[in-house]
Every structure is written in C-alpha cells, then in structure tokens.
C-alpha cells in the first residue's frame, strides 16, 4: 500500500519533470545566474585593470607622488592629482554640510511631525528630486544661482564671514558666483533625496515603544530626535550619509557647469576649482599626448579608489545597523 503510493508519487513527479524539462532546467538556471554574477565581477576587475594599465605611463613617471602633487601643465607634461582631488573632497564636504542637516530635518519631520495624510506625497516629491537629470541642476546653477551668488550671496559672505579670523580665509576674493561653494550647494541639493530616503527608512525602524516611552517621560521632540532616535540608528544614518557622499564624489555634469574648471588650489571656497570627474569630462576627449591621457586615466583611478572605499564603509555601516534592528 505504502510502497505503491511512493512509487506513484515518484512516477508523477518524474513525468511532470520530464514534461517541463525540469531535469535540465534547474542546472541551466543555476549556471546562468552564476554566469551573470561572474560577468559582473569580471567587468569590475576589468575596469580596475584597464584603469591601472591606462594610467601606468603617468604613474611610472610621477610615481605615487602623482596623488599629492599639484600642477596640471599640458605644455610641460607635468601632472598631479592634488587639485582635482582636493576639489572633489571639498565640494563633497560642502554638499554634506548642507545636505545632511537638511535631510535629517526632512526625514524627522516626515516620520514624526508631519500629518499622516501628507507624509507620502511629500516623501514622493522629495524622491522626485532624484529623478531630475544632473544637467538640469547644472543649467539651473549656472543661469539662475550663479548670478544670485555673484550679486547677493557672495558679497554678503565676504563682508561678514570674510573678516572673521581663520574662518575668513574661506571667504576671500572677488565674487564671481561660479566656484567651489556653488558647486557644493548644488551637490548638496542633489544628494538630499538619497540621504533623506535612507534616513527615513532607518528612523522608521526605531521601535515605537522607545519613542513613546520617551514622550511619556516628558521629552520634547528635539530630545526624542537627538537622544533617542539618532543614537538608536546612528550607524544607519552614517551609512546613508556615506551613500550620499559616494554620489557627490562622482557627480560630473552639474559640477562641470558651476565649478569654474580651474586647476588651481585656493583656500577660498568662492574661488573656482575643479573636481576629478569635471576634469575628466572637460579634457578627456581633447587630451593629446600619451602622458596627458594617462594622467587623466590616473585621475579616474584615484576617484575609483576613493569612491570604492567610501561606498564600502557606507555599506558596512548600513549592514550593521539593519542587523541591529533585526536583533
């Protein structure tokens, strides 16, 4: 009795498998997915190899000092990555200084204060900011923000902050509008939706009981935000910030429009500068001479390494924070 049933089941399974070709289907499916994975890894490896090999003629001449030497002279073929590297980091830091508090406020408002009916529409509106193409930000920055900066914002900054000791060094020089500060501001706006989205997610992961008990103990909203919500999901927030930073580091078009594309180091944030990706966008198609091209590829390599580490740290922190909430 029992035996026949087993045989029956086996037979029916067998026939079904044969009918759908499952016997071969599964291994094929498995190897296809494996192939995709291997392909992506190969592409990643290929990018690294090509970048390194492309940059080799420059790295051989300049050595590791390429990273911390300034100077970008196509006539004498002397190149160093310092100016674009500093520009990349400075604009990204400005973007974070502007973007992070904004995103924090927005995310907290959306999860704690905003009436329920409005939460979703506002969240979607903010996320739509991420859908605006970067070139639009660039055009808007150049044609709308740059004149405003030149005539109002920068003269104000120069006359007020410019005379403060130490801090004043960052706000010197003639107001041109175009420069590191404007580029940083645009970047800040561009990373805002990304950081806000991550922060909103991690804020929502805070168990309601924690918040409610804090409110029950008479804590104000600020105290709840600062003492309860933020410490609970600190790593997640940092992870979100790192993801935004990764995006800011690599942004090209918008920055190229408003940064001034000048290979010069300046203390002043109002001065024009350049970033790695802006330098590549400007010069790559035009560069004649092997060392020039190799130096540009070298810049790409530096950016790749920088972004890789920023994103790796960000992912790690995010991973740890989600593990924390699950446990």
């Amino acid at each position: 009795m029992l035996e026949t049933a087993t045989v029956d089941r086996n037979e029916s399974m067998q026939s079904r498998r044969n009918r759908f070709g499952m016997r071969f289907g599964d291994p094929i499916f498995r190897s296809v997915t494996l192939a995709f994975t291997v392909l992506v890894l190969l592409i990643l490896g290929g990018v690294i190899v090509v970048l390194f090999d492309g940059a080799w003629p420059a790295l051989r001449i300049f050595g590791p000092a390429f990273v911390w030497t300034s100077g970008w002279n196509p006539v004498t073929e002397h190149f160093g990555a310092l100016v674009p590297l500093v520009g990349t980091i400075v604009t990204s830091v400005i973007a974070m200084v502007i973007g992070v508090p904004f995103s924090f406020g927005l995310a907290f408002f959306l999860t704690e204060i905003c009436p329920h009916r409005l939460r979703q529409p506002i969240a979607i509106a903010i996320e739509l900011l991420a859908a605006v193409p970067s070139i639009i930000y660039g055009i808007w920055g150049l044609f709308v923000l740059a004149p405003l900066f030149q005539h109002y914002v920068e003269p104000f900054l120069i006359s007020t902050l410019g005379s403060v000791p130490l801090l004043g060094a960052f706000f010197q020089g003639p107001p041109i509008g175009i420069g590191m500060l404007l580029a940083g501001l645009i970047l800040g706006l561009m990373v805002l939706p990304f950081i806000t989205a991550v922060m909103r997610e991690v804020f929502l992961s805070v168990p309601p009981v924690l918040r409610e008990s804090a409110y029950g103990l008479g804590a104000t909203r600020w105290e709840v935000a600062w003492r309860v919500v933020l410490p609970y999901c600190r790593t997640g927030v940092v992870g979100g910030v790192m993801l935004g930073l990764g995006r800011a580091l690599g942004e090209t078009m918008a920055v190229t429009f408003v940064i001034g594309n000048a290979h010069r180091l300046s203390m002043s944030l109002l001065a024009p500068g350049t970033t790695i990706s802006a330098a590549l966008a400007n010069e790559f198609t035009e560069a004649d001479g092997d060392i020039y091209t190799a130096s540009l590829v070298g810049l790409g390599l530096v950016l790749f390494i920088l972004t890789f580490f920023v994103l790796a740290i960000g992912k790690r922190l995010l991973l740890r924070s989600t593990k924390g909430t699950l446990a």
């Binding site: 100077g71 004149p147 000048a262 290979h263």
Partner: peptide, 26 residues
C-alpha cells in the same frame, strides 16, 4: 599649446561654454 596651465580664471568647455560663462558673469 591647445591646453595650457592658466595662471588665473575659470574654464568653460568649448566656445559655447566660454560664451555662456562670460554672458553669465558680470
């Protein structure tokens, strides 16, 4: 040369880019 290390200034891409920057910057 076709590209040089400029002692001062801002860069625009192409004749178009320089025109836009000059048009925008007083």
């Amino acid at each position: 040369d076709a590209s040089i290390e400029w002692p001062v200034g801002l860069g625009g891409k192409g004749n178009e880019g320089v025109s836009a920057l000059v048009g925008q910057t007083q």
